[in-house]
Design a protein around this nucleic acid. Sequence first.
DNA 1: CTATTATTCGAACGAACGTTCGAACTGGAA
DNA 2: TTCCAGTTCGAACGTTCGTTCGAATAATAG
Lengths: 212, 212
Amino acid sequence: MSRYDQKLEFILRTAARIFAEKNYHSTSMRDISRATNVSLAGLYHYCKSKEELLFLIQDNCFGRVLERLEQRLEGVEDPITKLGIFIENHLSFFAANMSEMKVLSHEAESLRGDLYTHVSTRKDKYTKLARQILREVQESQEIKEPIDLTVATYALFGMMNWIYNWYDPQGKLKVSDLAGNVMKLFLNGFLPNGMCHGVPIPSESPSVWSHG
Amino acid sequence: MSRYDQKLEFILRTAARIFAEKNYHSTSMRDISRATNVSLAGLYHYCKSKEELLFLIQDNCFGRVLERLEQRLEGVEDPITKLGIFIENHLSFFAANMSEMKVLSHEAESLRGDLYTHVSTRKDKYTKLARQILREVQESQEIKEPIDLTVATYALFGMMNWIYNWYDPQGKLKVSDLAGNVMKLFLNGFLPNGMCHGVPIPSESPSVWSHG
DNA sequence: CTATTATTCGAACGAACGTTCGAACTGGAA
DNA sequence: TTCCAGTTCGAACGTTCGTTCGAATAATAG
């Protein structure tokens, strides 16, 4: 990886941290300059605008979640196993990349135009995938009064994406416990039949920015 | 109610709408001036700063949720009924006051100093109340592997507060259906015993800003 | 070495920001 | 009518913002 790419990566990681700390619109390029020890003008050698910084963070982050998810879903057929993988993938990635995922969740509307459309399209795809899994789960069971699919989908995302407001990955509660609890809470509610299967928790801790 | 109070209320309602549309930090006092037809300088007759506008919106909004909740919880003993009231109160208020509640949820970290502390303290109180209700619900049952209380509390808030990202109060899905689905989804997951009681939905549609 | 390219940055640009000030209005009481 | 407190606003203030430019430096190739 070239020096240029390494430094860009460093700038993106730092920018994500500051965007997460003080939010996008109240972070100045001077803040990022200060935190990276790159001069104000120097930053523009690595991006063409502040908005592109935000885009690169969001798009890069989303790409890795999706990539990881598709790998792990490959060959899996059982809907409930799929759902477990989906939840575990989302939460463990979130916990390992809090800044980037907070920026992705919290600054969803901070992009404009094509950049917004690009990220939004990816998000739609991801949402529809979740919805599809939930549909399969629901259809694989006999349920008297099924939960509305839209409510269920967004309730699940709400539970998962809200964690940047309270969860501390360094605290007592382990990611695997968090994922397990969410899985149990959601699946038992979604399928009120005592149907919750265990889902294996992978040991690897994913990182947004590859280092090799 | 005095002319002054009426105009302040109008300014706050308008500001909340714009804060919700384009977010606090990227909304300028000139945006609010334009939307209210009050001159830029004129706004400062009704507030002493932009930050105070945000505070008044959040504090006023929170006060009404809490007040309404305390009224409805009065005399209620059964924990599950309490939980139903809590969820229905939160969601119906949210749906009836989307802008204000979005500002309350999304701009939680946009206040600083005493104003931040004041709202944060109220939020803590509200969170602890929810947690307490969940504890009572949990203790009123015999559960083999209870869900972690912290996870459950924030998962519930996540489900509920996320709705500003997708729910349209004017759409097909009625607030009562939304609340019912969330109640069923959460309670069946939290108490995997088929224990979900129905909770009466009040007909009144609450509004943040009183009108007489 | 020299020539060329890639990287860095001090300084400055115009624009937009939150806020202030003093003067001009307004409506109701006397 | 006169008067005064309550209300309104045009104009400007000092600051900070994102971005640019051209020169200086570092790295690389021939």
